[in-house]
């Protein structure tokens, strides 16, 4: 069962201008529900564009984006068609129905934002409130939740992302870079999205900050069983946290599968120009030197046991 399905999706920037550029080219892709999926590709491969399509911030030039089999870009006419037969609309005058449907479309669009939470690159730029608490509460407030519910959500989100309670009353602008990033992440998690989409969540953070962020995301995903999509350049991070991987280049999906499958194709990855984890590079080097170690290694732990087994027995033993 796919949570998200892209059905022959294309996206063209600046159509009809001299700057026209095809960012996505007939992409069909299914994202498994309840999994962490990493999307890798270099700048301009179309991965960031794809992200914006998922919660309706942008809509595809061609094709459909399906969330639980529902086309998120259903046009007003289609919504109208679907609503016409429903009781509340049947008895309305034409203009009132039109108005009601317009409101319905806006409502669906906003609801989509709450269902598919989007964490942009360098999300700390989005902080604006006086206190960390209020900032995290911005999303839930827009959802129209009750005071108690908002409070519960904020505290829950703060816990997921490891924000200590004494930080909640501070101004977000007084925090360190890593803390700001976590507050921004909490601001989206507080909406309890079914799908969490993140663009380079750890960009520019030091190893400690990076681990905090990924632990937070992983914690949220495991506890709520939601679907997580992470767009990143860092294969090493992806290898560590993701179940599935999508490799993109030139607006197309080049590879899709679980991490093991993807990392076993080292030469394909480097021909796309991606940075392979150092440890996978090492394995390739050892194989070149005539040692029979397995190739689909992408974490240090796996490498330790594989190399150890090889050195002790002289066999790769996949």
């Amino acid at each position: 069962m796919y949570k998200i399905y892209l059905d022959h999706v294309s996206y063209i920037y600046g159509q009809g201008t001299p700057f026209e550029k095809k960012a996505l080219d007939d992409v069909s892709l299914g994202i498994r529900a309840g999994c962490m999926t990493g999307i890798i590709g270099h700048t301009g491969s179309g991965k960031s564009t794809m992200m914006q399509l998922l919660n309706g911030l942008a809509s595809p030039t061609e094709g459909k984006v399906l969330l639980d089999d529902y086309d998120i870009n259903s046009r007003p006419e289609e919504v109208l068609e679907a609503c016409k037969s429903l009781p509340p609309y049947r008895n309305l005058s034409k203009s009132a129905a039109k108005k009601a449907i317009k409101a319905e479309v806006t409502r669906r669009r906003r609801e989509l934002c709450f269902r598919v939470g989007l964490v942009m690159q360098y999300p700390e730029y989005q902080l604006f409130e006086e206190t960390v608490f209020k900032d995290i509460a911005f999303g839930p407030q827009n959802m129209g939740l009750s005071e108690e519910e908002i409070k519960a959500r904020v505290l829950e989100a703060a816990e997921f992302t490891g924000i200590e309670s004494d930080l909640l009353d501070k101004s977000p602008f007084d925090l360190s870079g890593g803390q700001k990033r976590r507050v921004a992440l909490a601001g989206v998690i507080a909406m309890r999205p079914e799908v969490l989409v993140l663009d380079e969540p750890a960009a520019g953070l030091d190893p400690r900050g990076r681990d905090f962020i990924f632990e937070g995301i992983s914690h949220y995903q495991k506890t709520t069983g939601s679907t997580v999509l992470i767009v990143s350049h860092s294969m090493e991070d992806m290898a560590r946290y993701c179940d599935d991987m999508v490799v993109m280049a030139n607006g197309q999906v080049k590879m899709h599968g679980n991490c093991k499958e993807v990392f076993s194709k080292v030469s394909d990855l480097s021909s796309i120009g991606l940075d392979i984890p150092q440890i996978t590079q090492l394995m390739a080097l050892l194989r070149e030197k005539g040692m029979d170690v397995p190739q689909d290694i992408y974490t240090v732990d796996a490498a330790v046991s594989a190399v150890k087994r090889f050195l002790e027995t002289g066999k790769g033993g996949v």
Binding site: P207, E236, I279, K308
Partner: peptide, 14 residues
């Protein structure tokens, strides 16, 4: 709060 590169970590672990 710093980590050695993956390959160095491998040698350490071995």
């Amino acid at each position: 709060g710093l980590e050695v590169p993956q390959c160095a970590a491998l040698i350490h672990e071995l």
